[in-house]
Design a protein around this nucleic acid. Sequence first.
DNA 1: TAGTGGTCTAGACCACGTG
DNA 2: ACGTGGTCTAGACCACTAC
Lengths: 251, 251
Amino acid sequence: MENAVVSRGFGQAPLYKIVKSRLLEGLTAGEWTTGEALPSEAKLAARFDVSIGTVRKAIDELVAEKILVRHQGKGTFVAVHNKDRTLYYFFHLVGPDGVKEFPTSELLSFGKAKAEAAVAEQLRIARGAPVFRFRNLLKLQGRPVILDHITIPQALFPDLDEEALRKRESTIYALYQARYGINVIRAQERLRARPCDAEAAKILGLASGAPILEIHRVAYTYNDVPVEVRLSTANTEHHDYLNDLGKGQAR
Amino acid sequence: MENAVVSRGFGQAPLYKIVKSRLLEGLTAGEWTTGEALPSEAKLAARFDVSIGTVRKAIDELVAEKILVRHQGKGTFVAVHNKDRTLYYFFHLVGPDGVKEFPTSELLSFGKAKAEAAVAEQLRIARGAPVFRFRNLLKLQGRPVILDHITIPQALFPDLDEEALRKRESTIYALYQARYGINVIRAQERLRARPCDAEAAKILGLASGAPILEIHRVAYTYNDVPVEVRLSTANTEHHDYLNDLGKGQAR
DNA sequence: TAGTGGTCTAGACCACGTG
DNA sequence: ACGTGGTCTAGACCACTAC
């Protein structure tokens, strides 16, 4: 194959970045969906008219960002929101021994509302745009530990109803992915200590005003499009929020 | 060059992993120190008798782990603990606008002590082994925000004294690195909401019992050797602990 | 056996920093 | 002009999975 470098102009982005963008476009467009294998590296190389090494470098980055997963001998797959992944990347509470346990989940309420200013800004939708709002209670070893207030735009999740949320067999993000093709790949959390309000106190079995950990999360899909805003109220009497620093945040 | 793969036995680790280990050994041994350039990739390739591509792959991982830093046209360097790095990787409090600001630091106390059981275990030293213990107050915009209780083994930091801590011009981790060649590259934090005790309340300007964010950090150098235990008490009235999820934790 | 990703090599050329 | 890292190619062979 002739040297593609020569035929590219000056000041261009590197080829592998272009390939990466193309792959991301395919993912965004749903060309390959949940758990499905992408074409082999050789086929992708032929399709984009680049060498395999360049395709590999593009895929390397997408793997580092947890968007794709490689399986030697099988292929490269769109990362799936199973319980393990959620537990590993999006759930941080651990017991005193440092062990993570998968929580049980209980839907407390579900309804439609209009986005107020702060939430609308974070979801990048118009103020007053229709949203779903629901509350979810997470328990560890039967003990209520986290109360979630979740807000998502109705535009992204048409026809979502209480049934779907209640009957889901896996995580909420797996539901987003399986039913709406929306893949949460990144989130930003802000944590603060606050006195617990009466409602949370009752649900979490705490005294009103007891210190709780408040976690404000915005979750994003491809291209940094926000898809969910979540306010979690966590009882940290018996669990800690675990955070590993400096293990190589990409970019 | 003959194909090194052939001359390697079976069941071996990949060559680039071996090269990576060798580089880590050099770093641990202090062969290249703070801010110093490593030999060029070509020289490393010759030295380890592998191709440049293999050296690059080894360095790629060390860069992803923030142990090395590349500068095109200049060389590859040992990552330095300057203010930017500390701010970016080890300091998480941000204002309501999401902006990070570099805190001012004030040493409140300094002394010698013997490690009690819990700390000894985390530092992997004998119970009762000699440690330094000091308290540090961090202020943002003149307002006291974080009270740190820091414990480090005397064995790793011989001759440390109050003067050195008080007179340092950069961060504490920069001091560890510059004076003792100890490079903090990773940390694990556990966060919880707790009522503030009387001492912290007074120092942070809060009511006793007000909710504060308690951050328990263990900091590690190469090969996961723990070097510091730190209990931070943070006032989250006006600041949040910011955490980005899913941007590619290595390993 | 065939197909996939994983490792390794060798060499060309580009972009950046310094003298 | 030279040395450094950055990109890209081409091809060989290994390791794993599936049939």
